[in-house]
Design a binder for these strands. Structure first.
Length: 885
RNA sequence: GGGCGAGUAGCUCAGUUUGGUUAGAGCGCCUGCCUUACAAGCAGGAUGUCGCUGGUUCGACUCCAGUCUUGCCCACCA
C-alpha cells in the first residue's frame, strides 16, 4: 500500500473539516448524561481579521476541547463575536472619512446600517478564519453580542442593577475632542510631549489679609476654580486651610482645602482645583463636595460661566487671562515647562476633559464576592501570578462608567420624561412615562460600554434569562482562555456578573495565554510590518504545523517570540509522522487486514520496549494537559514520536519488517501500527488534520480496535502500567549506549558509512555475555559491523583500535589502515577531558563536609563514577604509551 | 512614580517551584551520507564563567540581598 510521498495539508484540512461538520461532531448535546466541559470563546472584535494571538488562543481552546471530547465528556465550545462598540464604530467612521463624510452626515440609522454591513463582512471572515484553524466550535450556537437574545440579557441585567440601586447617573469627565465633537476612549487619546509654560499666580485671601501663590499650566481654567488645595501635612500652609480665597478675575470666594493628592514637593505645593476640567481635580472635588463649574462650550470656547471671557476660544482666553493677571499684578512669573498633552487620534486637536452626565455601576459592593471567589479557589488563575493583577484591580475598583456617546451598541434602556422629569427603566420599550403617563418621553442617546455585554457572555450565550437546558448543563463553564490584558476589563467583570446574576462563578479555571511577539520580541504590528498573519503561515506550512508550534511554545508565564523557522521545524515533524506511516504501509499487501492485537508471546524485546516507552509518553502528555502545560505535553509527543518511535523502534524492526518470516512480519506490523495509532490519538488535539487523515487510513487496515467514524470519536489513550518494563528499558538504554559509542568512534575515525568494520568485546561478567548474545545482532546491523560476535574475557591488547566503554564493558573498534595519527590525537584529547572531570570529582570527594553531609546515595554515585573514570583514564594512557612505541 | 515578568548556545526558548550526574531542545553552523519512510531526511560533531556583584551552603543556573539591562501593566503629576 502506498500513499503520497508528501503530506498535503491544505487538501487534508478542507476534507476533514467538512467531514467533521457534516457529521455534526462539534455539536454539544445539552440533554445527555455525560459530564459537561464547556468553554466560551473570548469573542473576537468584529473590527478586523484575526491575528496570530487569536490563533494561539483558539488553538489552545481547541486542544482542550478535542482532548475532553476524547475523554468522554460532553463538550460545548461556544463561539461568537463581539460588537466592540467604539473600536468598530471608529473603523467605519474612518472609512466614511475617506469619502469625506461624518457619521452626522448619515444620521444614526444609516450609520448603524453601514456598521452592520461591516459587521457582516468581518464577522463572517472571523468565523471563516476560526474554521481555517481547525476550531471545533459548536457553530450552530454562534452568538453575537448585539443578537436579539443577548440584547435581551443586557436589558434584563441593566434593569435589575437599576432596581437594586447599583446604577446611578452622575457627572464624569470624558475625553472630548472639540473639533470632532465626540468622546474619546482613553486609548484613543495620543499623548505627545509639548513645551508649555508654568504660570505662578497670586491668589488673594478673601479677608484681605494677604495672598498665596499657586502654580498652573492651564491658567484659563481658573474661571472654573472652586478651591485651592494644599497637602494636609504641609507646614507652610496648614494654618491657611479653611480660609477663603477671592478668585481673581471672577471675584468668587473659594475655600482652601487640604488633600493628600497634592504633592508638596512639586511647584509651590499649592494648586487650584477645577473639578470640571481636570480628572484629578474632579476626584478631589468629589471628596470635598466642591461645585463643578463647566466653563467650556462643546467647541471649547468659553461659555456663560466665564464672565467677560465668554465666546473666546480656549487658547485665546488663556492669553487674555494671563495678560489681565499681569496687568493686575497677580502674575508672579512664567517658567518653561515640559508636559504631555493628549490629542485626538484622528485630528490631533488637544483633547479637553469635559464634564458630562454618565451612567455608573457601583462596583465596591458587587466586587466583594468576586474577591472571595478567587481567594477561596472557586476561580483559579493559571499561571497563578496573574491573581495579583486581578486583586490589584478588584481591591481598588472604582465605579464603572457604562455610558458611551456613540451609536454602535446596546442603547441605554432609560427614558426621560419631559413633563415630570422622572426616568423610566423598563424591561419592554415603553410608550409613556411610568410616573406621569406622559407620552413626552425620550430614550437616552447613549449606548452601553462594550464590556457590559461581554461581562454577561458566559450565561447570555446560553439563553439567559430563560432557564435553558444549556445553562443547566454547561453553566458554570470550565475554562476560560484569554490574555492578561483584559483581566480587568473582562475577566473580573464576568466573575462579578456571574456571581451577581447566576450566584455562581462563570468558570473555574482562567488560563492566561502568552503574548505573541515577533522573533526579536517586539510587538507585532502592521506599522512595523512584522505581523505574522495566521492564514499566511497556515497556507505556507499547514494548519497542523502552526498549531503545534504555538502549543509547544506556550510555556506558562512567558511571551512567545515566534520565529517562522520554528513553524518550519514543526512542519517537518508532521512530515515525519506522515513518512513513518508510509514506511509501515509499504509492507502492507493488497487487501491485507491487521485486525486483532499482536499475540504477547510473539513480541520481541523491541516491541515490548516501545510499548513500555509509550506508557511513559502517555503519562507525560496527560500530566502536561492536566496542568495546562501545553509545551510539556507537545514536547513529550514530539520526543516520543520522532526520537523513540522513528529513530529507534522503526530502525529496530526493519530486519523483521523486510524479513522472510511472515508471522514475524505480521506481528511487527501490528505493534508498529498499534503504537502509531495510539500516538495519533494523543496528537489529535494538537494536530487534528494529519492525525485524522492517517487514522482513517489505518482504519481501513483494521488497526484501531475501536469502532468509530472519526479519530475524534475515539478515546484519549490511558497508560497501562503493566506494560512498563523498567529492566528492559535499562537494557535498551545500554544497547543504545553501545551504538552511540561505536558510531561515535566510526565517525571520529571517518569510516565510510557503508564500510563494515570489526568490533571486539571484552566481557568481564556473565551478564554482559547474556546481554550481547541477545542484543548483538541489532547492534551489528545498526552500526554496520561484523555480524559474528567476537567476545571473550581475555582479549589480547590491540593498540591499533579505538576503545569504548559502556557500563564497564570494554569494546574496541579495529582501525582500518591509515587512521592512527588522527586517532592518537583524539585519545589525547579524551584523556585531557577525563582528567578534568576526575579532578573535579576528587576535589568534591576529598571535601569532608561534602562526604559527611551530602546524602550517602549521592556520595556513592560520585565515588563509583570517579572509580570507573580513573580506570578508563589509565587504560587510555597505557594505550597511548604502546602506540607511541 | 507603583506593580509584575524576563536576562541560559549564534538565534528563539525549556529547565529553576523541591539546590546534588558532564545544563537541554528547535533552528543555524561543521563533517560524512541521495543507506529503497522521510535531504522537510540520516549518522556524527563543535558551541554556554546560566546578566553582574555579594551572601547562605559541603555544594547555587536553582535560594537570599543588591545591581545593571529589558519587556509589559497601572498611574501620570498641577
Amino acid at each position: 500500500m502506498d500513499i503520497a510521498k508528501r503530506y498535503d495539508p491544505a487538501g487534508s484540512r478542507e476534507k476533514w473539516y467538512d467531514f467533521w461538520q457534516d457529521n455534526n461532531l462539534f455539536h454539544a448535546d445539552e440533554s445527555n448524561d455525560k459530564p459537561a466541559y464547556s468553554i466560551v470563546i473570548p469573542p473576537p472584535n468584529v473590527t478586523g481579521k484575526l491575528h496570530i494571538g487569536h490563533a494561539l488562543n483558539n488553538t489552545l481552546q481547541d486542544i482542550l476541547c478535542r482532548w475532553k471530547r476524547m475523554e468522554g465528556e460532553e463538550v460545548l465550545w461556544m463561539p461568537g463575536t463581539d460588537h466592540a462598540g467604539i473600536a468598530t464604530q471608529n473603523v467605519v467612521e474612518k472609512q466614511l472619512a475617506q469619502e469625506g463624510l461624518t457619521r452626522h452626515d448619515l444620521g444614526r440609522d444609516k450609520m448603524l446600517e453601514r456598521i452592520w454591513t461591516w459587521k457582516k463582512e468581518y464577522g463572517d471572515a472571523i468565523i471563516h478564519q476560526l474554521k481555517y484553524l481547525g476550531s471545533s466550535c459548536d457553530w450552530d450556537r454562534t452568538r453575537f453580542t448585539l443578537d436579539e437574545g443577548l440584547s435581551h440579557a443586557v436589558r434584563e441585567v441593566f434593569v435589575r442593577l437599576y432596581e437594586d440601586g447599583s446604577l446611578y447617573r452622575g457627572n464624569y469627565l470624558v475625553n472630548w475632542c472639540p473639533r470632532c465633537h465626540t468622546t474619546l476612549s482613553d486609548d484613543e487619546v495620543e499623548y505627545t510631549d509639548s513645551n508649555g509654560s508654568f504660570y505662578y499666580i497670586k491668589y488673594p485671601f478673601a479677608d484681605g489679609s494677604g495672598d498665596m501663590t499657586i502654580a498652573t499650566t492651564r491658567p484659563e481654567t481658573m474661571l472654573g476654580d472652586t478651591a485651592v488645595a494644599v497637602h494636609p501635612e504641609d507646614e507652610r500652609y496648614q494654618h491657611l486651610v479653611g480660609k477663603e480665597i477671592l478668585l481673581p478675575l471672577m471675584n468668587r470666594k473659594i475655600p482652601i482645602i487640604a488633600d493628600s493628592y497634592v504633592d508638596p514637593e512639586f511647584g509651590v505645593g499649592a494648586l487650584k482645583i477645577t473639578p470640571a476640567h481636570d480628572i484629578n481635580d474632579f476626584e478631589v472635588g468629589k471628596r470635598h463636595n466642591l461645585e463643578q463649574i463647566n466653563i467650556f462650550n462643546e467647541d471649547a470656547t468659553i461659555n456663560g460661566n466665564g464672565g467677560v471671557y465668554e465666546g473666546m476660544e480656549r487658547y485665546q482666553a488663556r492669553k487674555k487671562i494671563v495678560a489681565d493677571l499681569k496687568e493686575q499684578g497677580l502674575l508672579i512669573k512664567v517658567e518653561d515647562h515640559q508636559n504631555r498633552i493628549g490629542g485626538c487620534y484622528r485630528c490631533n486637536t488637544n483633547v479637553e476633559p469635559y464634564l458630562s452626565l454618565q451612567w455608573f455601576i457601583k462596583m465596591k459592593p458587587l466586587m466583594e464576592e468576586p474577591i472571595k471567589a478567587v481567594r477561596d479557589g472557586r476561580v483559579k488563575f493559571i499561571p497563578k501570578q496573574w491573581e495579583n493583577t486581578y486583586f490589584s484591580w478588584v481591591e481598588n475598583v472604582r465605579d464603572w462608567p457604562v455610558s458611551r456617546q456613540i451609536w454602535w451598541g446596546h442603547r441605554i434602556p432609560v427614558w426621560y420624561c419631559d413633563d415630570c422629569g422622572e426616568m423610566t427603566v423598563p424591561r419592554e420599550d415603553p410608550d409613556c412615562c411610568a410616573h406621569c403617563q406622559s407620552k413626552n418621553i425620550r430614550q437616552d442617546e447613549d449606548v452601553l460600554d462594550t464590556w457590559f455585554s461581554s461581562a454577561l457572555w458566559p450565561f447570555s450565550t446560553m439563553g439567559w434569562p430563560d432557564k435553558t437546558k444549556e445553562l443547566a448543563k454547561f453553566y458554570p463553564t470550565t475554562t476560560l482562555v484569554t490574555g492578561h490584558d483584559i483581566i480587568y476589563f473582562w475577566v473580573a467583570r464576568m466573575i462579578m456578573m456571574g456571581l451577581y446574576i447566576m450566584d455562581e462563578v462563570p468558570f473555574s479555571d482562567v488560563y492566561i495565554t502568552a503574548l505573541v511577539r515577533d522573533a526579536q520580541g517586539r510587538k507585532m504590528s502592521k506599522s512595523l510590518g512584522n505581523a505574522i498573519n495566521p492564514i499566511d503561515v497556515i497556507d505556507k506550512y499547514g494548519c497542523d504545523s502552526v498549531r503545534f508550534t504555538l502549543a509547544i511554545m506556550a510555556a506558562q508565564g512567558r511571551s512567545i517570540n515566534l520565529d517562522e523557522e520554528r513553524i518550519e521545524g514543526y512542519r517537518n515533524f508532521t512530515n515525519k509522522i506522515w513518512n513513518a506511516t508510509r514506511l509501515i504501509l509499504a509492507s502492507i499487501e493488497e487487501g491485507e487486514v491487521l485486525s486483532g492485537e499482536a499475540p504477547q508471546d510473539k513480541l520481541e524485546w523491541a516491541d515490548r520496549w516501545i510499548l513500555s516507552r509509550l506508557q511513559h509518553a502517555i503519562d507525560a502528555v496527560r500530566k502536561g494537559m492536566e496542568e495546562y502545560k501545553f509545551n510539556d505535553a507537545s514536547e513529550a509527543l514530539y520526543h516520543f514520536v520522532w526520537h523513540e518511535y522513528c529513530d529507534w523502534y522503526l530502525e529496530l524492526i526493519k530486519p523483521r519488517l523486510y524479513g522472510d518470516d511472515l508471522e514475524a512480519r505480521l506481528v511487527v506490523k501490528k505493534v508498529a501500527f498499534q503504537v502509531l495509532e495510539c500516538a495519533l490519538r494523543m496528537l489529535h488535539p494538537f494536530i487534528p488534520f494529519i492525525t485524522e487523515e492517517l487514522w482513517q487510513i489505518l482504519k481501513t487496515l483494521g488497526i484501531p480496535h475501536e469502532d468509530a467514524i472519526s479519530i475524534m470519536k475515539t478515546s484519549y489513550p490511558k497508560s497501562d502500567q503493566s506494560a512498563i518494563d523498567d529492566a528492559l528499558e535499562a537494557d535498551v538504554e545500554k544497547f543504545q549506549k553501545f551504538i552511540y559509542v561505536i558510531r561515535n568512534i566510526r565517525g571520529e575515525l571517518n569510516i565510510a558509512p557503508g564500510l563494515e568494520t570489526k568490533v571486539e568485546f571484552k566481557i568481564s561478567d556473565s551478564a554482559d555475555e547474556e546481554f550481547l548474545k541477545r542484543y548483538y545482532p541489532l547492534i551489528a546491523t545498526l552500526c554496520k559491523i561484523n555480524q559474528d560476535l567476537s567476545a571473550s574475557a581475555d582479549l589480547e591488547p590491540n593498540p591499533a583500535s579505538s576503545v569504548g566503554m559502556v557500563d564497564g564493558c570494554e569494546l574496541r573498534v579495529l582501525w582500518p589502515a591509515e587512521v592512527e595519527e588522527k586517532e592518537i590525537q583524539r585519545l589525547q584529547k579524551q584523556v585531557e577531558q577525563l582528567n578534568k572531570v576526575i579532578m573535579g570529582r576528587e576535589k568534591k570527594l576529598s571535601n569532608k563536609n561534602y562526604v559527611d553531609r551530602a546524602p550517602e546515595k549521592v556520595v556513592q554515585i560520585e565515588r563509583d563514577k570517579c572509580q570507573s573514570e580513573m580506570q578508563e583514564c589509565e587504560r587510555l594512557k597505557k594505550q597511548l604509551e604502546i602506540l607511541a612505541k
